[in-house]
Design a protein around this nucleic acid. Structure first.
Length: 588
RNA sequence: CGGGGCGUAGCGCAGCCUGGUAGCGCAUCUGGUUUGGGACCAGAAAGUCGGAAGUUCGAAUCUUCUCGCCCCGACCA
C-alpha cells in the first residue's frame, strides 16, 4: 500500500471520545472509526490485521479437526423459542420482524443453528465426533459498550461447536480448544490466563474464560498466587471461617436506632460484623409454570461478607436480578435496614451456606430501630435455598490451599463451554448409538473474539509514540520512508522487490516533511522501518530500525532485499520460538 | 436502570456565567520557500453552534423537551 493513496489521515490529537490506550491509538493511527456506540468501522489497516488474526485462528482450529462453514447472522425466532432463549434473554437480543411479520433474531451466537443443522444431518454415532466452526458477526445489545473495541455491540468472533457421542469425546474436544486458544493468543503475542467461569446464558456444566490481564478489564478474577487456582469472581469460591460455636441463646430484642448498616450495627452493639446476618433484598425473575414472574428475594450472608449476584441468580435458577425498591421491601412487611427472615411471608429466602453453621447472630427485627439478638438458623427460620452466595474478596482464603486470594482485572478474549445436551435435548438433536438407542448429541461451544483480540493486542503492545504490532498480526511488516528525490526513486524499486519477496510494505511516498512520516511510522507501529534518504545514502545505504528498539543500522542498497527478508523471518521465528516454549510450559 | 460529563469547521478546543454580526490551533485548498522527528511565508475555503419548541426587538449563550456520545455503577459468553 502507498500512503499517498490511503484515504484515512492519522490524527494528531486524541479524539475526545476515547479513554483507553488501545482505543485512542487505533483511532489516531487510522485503523478504525466509530459509527455508533459499540459499532465500529474497520478501516483497511484494521482489516489486514483482523485477517491475520482470523488466519491464525483458522490454522489452530483446523489443526484440531475443525471444519469451517458460515451460518447466517439472521435467524428465525422459532429456533430460539425451541431452546427457550427467546424468552430467557432480555434486551441484549436484537429482535425484529420481517415483512411477513415473523419474529426474527440477530445472531448472538449459533448453538441453535448448529443444533438445527445437525438434527437434520446426524443420525448415527458413526458421524461423530464432529467439529465445525465459523467466523461471523454477532450482535449483542450490551447496555453499556465501553473502552473502544474492548466492549462492543457488533463484533466478529470465531465460534466452534463440537458434537460428540460420549462425555469423553466432549472432554477431548474441550481440552483441544483449551490448548488451541492458548496457541492463538501466544501467536498474537498476547499474554492470557485461563480461569473457571460462569456458564451464564449458555447453560452447561464446565466453562473456562481466557483472560488478558489489564487494569482496564471489566471482569474481576480471583487468583491464588500460591497454588495457581483462578476463577472469575462471579463464581469464585473461598474458604469460609466459621465463628466459634455457641450454645443457642433465646432471642432478645434490642433498640438500635439509626443502625441501618452492618457497620453501624456492629459498632452500636460492640460486636464483630461476622456476628451479624446481612439481609439483602433483590427482585428476581423466577420461572413459575413456564412463565417468568418477579419475586422478592431475601438473601442472607454473614455481616462480614457480601452477596454475589451471579451466585444468587444461579442458586435461584432465575433469569434476572435487580435491587429491590424500598416500597417492595416495605410491602413485604419489613423495613429496609432492619429486615430479618423471621416471620416474613411471600419472599424467597436464600441463605449463604455458612449461615446454618453460625449461632446467635444479630438480625433485624422487621421494625424501625430494633434488632434481634441470638437468631439461629433452623430454630428461628428456614430458607428456601441454602447455597454459596457470598462474594469472594481480596484476601479471602483460597479454597484449595488457604493462601490469600488476589484480585485482578481482565478482558475476556475467549471462552469454552461444555454444553452437554442443553441444546440437543431442547432441539431434539439425536443420534442412534452403537447399542441401538437414540441419544442426544453432546455439545461444546467455543468462542474467541477477533476484534477483541485486536484491541487487546493494541492495549498490550504500544509506547508513548504509538502502536508496536507483533509481526504476526501487523497490517504490514515494514514501513518504508523515502526522503528526497533520490531516496524516492530507490524506494519505489525496493517497494516492488520486497513485495515480490514476501515482505509486506507500506510505502510512505507522500510529499510530506520527514517529521510527519516518522511520526506516522511510529503511530501505525509496523515492526520494521526502512528509511532511504540523501543522508542514509551518504552513510552507505538505507536505514533499518525496529519499532521496539531504539537504535538503527545502515544497510547497503545491494544487500537490502536479502537483509530485510532475513530480519522479517527472524522476527517470525523469534515469535514462533516463544510460542513453542509457552506451549511446552502449558503441557507440563 | 441509577449517577455524572460533553455536543460550536475534518480533529482538539475557546466563546455560554453577564443575550447584540461565531473564534483559535492543527488539518484542507492555491502560490512560493523548505526536506531526518507532526516546517515557514502569503492567501483562500470551510460551521443548520446536535435537534425541536419557548422567552426576547434579538439566542451558541436563558427555559423546557428531545437525540447522540463518553465515564462511573448496575448488567453481561
Amino acid at each position: 500500500m502507498l500512503m499517498s493513496q490511503y484515504f484515512v489521515k492519522t490524527l494528531r490529537d486524541d479524539p475526545s471520545e476515547a479513554e483507553v490506550t488501545s482505543h485512542k491509538l487505533l483511532l489516531r493511527a487510522g485503523f478504525v472509526r466509530q459509527l455508533a456506540a459499540g459499532i465500529f468501522i474497520n478501516l483497511p489497516l484494521a482489516e489486514r490485521s483482523n485477517t491475520k488474526i482470523e488466519n491464525i485462528i483458522r490454522e489452530e482450529i483446523e489443526a484440531i479437526g475443525g471444519l469451517e462453514m458460515t451460518m447466517p447472522v439472521i435467524h428465525p425466532a422459532d429456533i430460539w423459542k425451541e431452546t427457550q432463549r427467546w424468552y430467557q434473554i432480555g434486551g441484549e437480543m436484537g429482535r425484529f420482524k420481517d415483512r411477513n411479520n415473523h419474529d426474527m433474531v440477530l445472531a448472538m451466537t449459533h448453538e441453535e443453528v448448529v443444533a438445527f443443522t445437525m438434527r437434520k444431518e446426524i443420525r448415527s454415532y458413526k458421524q461423530l465426533p464432529a467439529l465445525i466452526y465459523h467466523i461471523q458477526t454477532k450482535w449483542r445489545d450490551d447496555p453499556r459498550p465501553r473502552a473502544g473495541l474492548i466492549r462492543v455491540r457488533e463484533f466478529v468472533m470465531k465460534d466452534s461447536y463440537s458434537l460428540d457421542a460420549t462425555p469423553e469425546g466432549l472432554d477431548k474436544q474441550y481440552r483441544n480448544h483449551y490448548r488451541a486458544y492458548f496457541n492463538i493468543a501466544h501467536r498474537c503475542d498476547l499474554p492470557v490466563i485461563s480461569v473457571k467461569s460462569d456458564t451464564g446464558m449458555m447453560g452447561g456444566s464446565l466453562a473456562h474464560e481466557f483472560m488478558y490481564l489489564t487494569p482496564i478489564g471489566e471482569d474481576t478474577l480471583m487468583i491464588c498466587e500460591k497454588c495457581g487456582l483462578s476463577a472469575n469472581r462471579q463464581i469464585a469460591v473461598f474458604s469460609k471461617k466459621e465463628n466459634p460455636k455457641e450454645e443457642a441463646k433465646p432471642i432478645e430484642e434490642v433498640a438500635t436506632p439509626g443502625a441501618t448498616t452492618i457497620e453501624a450495627l456492629a459498632k452500636s452493639l460492640d460486636i464483630p460484623a461476622a456476628k451479624t446476618a446481612k439481609v439483602v433484598f433483590k427482585v428476581a425473575a423466577v420461572k413459575e409454570e413456564e412463565e417468568y414472574v418477579d419475586k422478592l428475594v431475601l438473601a442472607i450472608v454473614r455481616g462480614d461478607m457480601e452477596v454475589n449476584e451471579t451466585k444468587l441468580v444461579n442458586a435461584l435458577e432465575a433469569k434476572a436480578l435487580r435491587p429491590a425498591h424500598d416500597e417492595e421491601i416495605t410491602a413485604a412487611g419489613t423495613v429496609p435496614g432492619y429486615a430479618s427472615p423471621i416471620g416474613l411471608k411471600g419472599v424467597i429466602t436464600v441463605v449463604d451456606d455458612i449461615i446454618p453453621a453460625e449461632s446467635n447472630l444479630v438480625s433485624g427485627a422487621n421494625k424501625e430501630g430494633f434488632h434481634l439478638l441470638n437468631v439461629n438458623y433452623k430454630r428461628d427460620y428456614k430458607a428456601d435455598v441454602v447455597a454459596d452466595i457470598a462474594m469472594t474478596r481480596d484476601g479471602a482464603a483460597c479454597p484449595q490451599c488457604e493462601a490469600p486470594l488476589v484480585s485482578f482485572r481482565g478482558v475476556e478474549v475467549g471462552n469454552i463451554f461444555q454444553l452437554g445436551t442443553r441444546y440437543s435435548d431442547s432441539m431434539d438433536c439425536k443420534f442412534l448409538d452403537k447399542d441401538g438407542q437414540w441419544k442426544p448429541v453432546i455439545m461444546g461451544s467455543y468462542g474467541i473474539g477477533v476484534g477483541r483480540l485486536l484491541a487487546c493486542i493494541a492495549e498490550e503492545h504500544n509506547d508513548e509514540n504509538g502502536l508496536c504490532w507483533p509481526v504476526s498480526v501487523a497490517p504490514y511488516h515494514l514501513y518504508l520512508i523515502s526522503i528526497g528525490e533520490k531516496g524516492k526513486e530507490i524506494a519505489q524499486r525496493v517497494y516492488k522487490e520486497l513485495w515480490q519477496e514476501g515482505v509486506e510494505v507500506l510505502f510512505d511516498d507522500r510529499d510530506e516533511s520527514p517529521g510527519i512520516k516518522f511520526k506516522d511510522a511510529d503511530l501505525i507501529g509496523l515492526p520494521l522501518r526502512l528509511t532511504i534518504s540523501d543522508r542514509s545514502l551518504k552513510k552507505g545505504g538505507a536505514e533499518l530500525k525496529f519499532r521496539k528498539e531504539s537504535g538503527s543500522t545502515i544497510i547497503p542498497i545491494e544487500e537490502l532485499i536479502q537483509k530485510i527478508k532475513e530480519e522479517k523471518v527472524r522476527l517470525e521465528e523469534d515469535l514462533a520460538r516463544e510460542v513453542k516454549e509457552k506451549t511446552e510450559e502449558l503441557e507440563d
